[in-house]
Design a protein around this nucleic acid. Sequence first.
DNA 1: CGGCTGATCGTG
DNA 2: ACGATCAGCCGA
Length: 196
Amino acid sequence: MILPAEFYRRDTLRVARELLGQRLIHVLPDGTRLAGRIVETEAYLGIDDPACHTFGNRRTSRTETMYASGGVAYVYLIYGMYWCLNAVSQADGVPEAVLIRALMPEEGLDYWAAQHPAHRPEHWMNGPGKLCRAMQIQKQHNGLSLQSAYFHIEAADSPPRSRIVATTRVGVDYAGEAAKWPLRFYDQDSPAVSRR
DNA sequence: CGGCTGATCGTG
DNA sequence: ACGATCAGCCGA
């Protein structure tokens, strides 16, 4: 079952925690099916979160998709080289999102093995830039519904709460106090969580 | 219009 | 520890 829009139109912390264990699917134009299990997320809490692109209600062409109703993808370029995928959360006009930070590969193993011959599957998508490269997610996915036939997140089993770790976000040291907020979530038993 | 910067990653 | 690499943000 594809996660319904209502799943995303809620408190961003809950969306971030509950996305753990769900499956991200991307079917390529040639029919290749790519899928991975979400094992790590981070919440970005909008206009009052100094680490969020929409801090201070900065509404620009880049951040515009974060203002949409929950259930669409916010994809942006970082360091001129890597795309990052977020699931927009909350109601229309509330610019919050969940960064998808790592996936465990599930479908498309042959496809990826051909391009990463030397590496182990659990390291193919253990970071937000790497997962977008592996899943072929780029600029054209920005603003796209996460319920699209060829691009969506489907319900799967969540890890038990006892396995979910909440800690500080990666790469936001510039954000002062907010750098200490425990908004990063991961499955402590997954070997595909990003390195620190 | 131009200078700066970053929700990263791979190499050393 | 550091450099790659560039869209978009900000100040002027």
